[in-house]
Amino acid sequence: MSAWELSRPQRHPFDWELADGNIVVRGTAKVWHQLVRGELYFRLRCAKRAPYAVLIGQWVKFDEHNVPRPDIVVFD
Score class of each variant (00 low, 15 high):
residue 72 I to E: 01
residue 55 L to V: 03
residue 35 L to R: 14
residue 35 L to Y: 11
residue 47 A to C: 09
residue 27 G to P: 08
residue 3 A to W: 06
residue 36 V to K: 07
residue 44 L to E: 08
residue 5 E to I: 07
residue 40 L to E: 04
residue 50 A to W: 08
residue 32 W to L: 13
residue 62 F to T: 03
residue 39 E to D: 13
residue 21 G to C: 07
residue 9 P to L: 10
residue 44 L to N: 07
residue 10 Q to M: 08
residue 71 D to S: 00
residue 44 L to S: 06
residue 73 V to K: 00
residue 17 E to Q: 15
residue 29 A to M: 09
residue 18 L to P: 03
residue 9 P to Q: 10
residue 24 V to A: 04
residue 71 D to Y: 00
residue 44 L to Y: 09
residue 15 D to K: 15
residue 35 L to D: 13
residue 73 V to S: 07
residue 33 H to V: 05
residue 1 M to K: 09
residue 34 Q to K: 14
residue 33 H to C: 05
residue 60 V to E: 01
residue 20 D to G: 14
residue 39 E to F: 10
residue 76 D to E: 11
residue 72 I to N: 02
residue 65 H to E: 11
residue 57 G to A: 02
residue 1 M to C: 06
residue 52 Y to A: 04
residue 41 Y to Q: 09
residue 19 A to M: 13
residue 7 S to H: 06
residue 52 Y to Q: 02
residue 27 G to I: 06
residue 17 E to T: 10
residue 12 H to M: 12
residue 68 P to Q: 01
residue 37 R to E: 15
residue 20 D to A: 15
residue 21 G to K: 08
residue 8 R to H: 11
residue 10 Q to F: 03
residue 12 H to E: 13
residue 74 V to W: 01
residue 28 T to C: 10
residue 21 G to H: 06
residue 20 D to W: 09
residue 70 P to N: 01
residue 14 F to D: 04
residue 9 P to E: 12
residue 68 P to C: 04
residue 8 R to E: 10
residue 58 Q to P: 03
residue 67 V to Q: 05
residue 66 N to D: 02
residue 20 D to F: 12
residue 40 L to Y: 04
residue 50 A to P: 11
residue 70 P to K: 02
residue 52 Y to P: 00
residue 68 P to L: 01
residue 15 D to N: 14
residue 12 H to K: 15
residue 66 N to L: 01
residue 44 L to G: 07
residue 42 F to D: 13
residue 63 D to T: 03
residue 23 I to F: 14
residue 51 P to F: 00
residue 20 D to R: 13
residue 27 G to E: 14
residue 38 G to A: 09
residue 70 P to Y: 00
residue 10 Q to R: 13
residue 12 H to T: 13
residue 75 F to R: 01
residue 52 Y to T: 03
residue 57 G to D: 07
residue 35 L to H: 12
residue 70 P to T: 00
residue 49 R to M: 08
residue 54 V to S: 06
residue 13 P to G: 13
residue 10 Q to Y: 03
residue 27 G to S: 15
residue 5 E to P: 01
residue 23 I to D: 11
residue 19 A to Q: 14
residue 18 L to V: 08
residue 53 A to I: 00
residue 20 D to L: 12
residue 63 D to M: 03
residue 27 G to C: 10
residue 48 K to Q: 15
residue 24 V to L: 11
residue 34 Q to E: 15
residue 49 R to K: 15
residue 6 L to V: 05
residue 61 K to G: 02
residue 64 E to F: 02
residue 68 P to A: 04
residue 28 T to P: 08
residue 48 K to F: 04
residue 59 W to M: 08
residue 49 R to G: 05
residue 70 P to S: 02
residue 39 E to Q: 13
residue 53 A to N: 05
residue 32 W to C: 10
residue 16 W to G: 09
residue 56 I to R: 07
residue 60 V to S: 02
residue 10 Q to E: 12
residue 17 E to H: 10
residue 32 W to M: 11
residue 10 Q to H: 08
residue 70 P to C: 03
residue 69 R to M: 04
residue 21 G to I: 07
residue 45 R to D: 08
residue 22 N to S: 12
residue 56 I to Q: 12
residue 42 F to R: 15
residue 6 L to R: 15
residue 50 A to Q: 08
residue 5 E to F: 07
residue 52 Y to C: 10
residue 11 R to W: 11
residue 40 L to P: 03
residue 17 E to D: 10
residue 73 V to H: 00
residue 5 E to K: 10
residue 4 W to S: 12
residue 14 F to A: 06
residue 43 R to K: 14
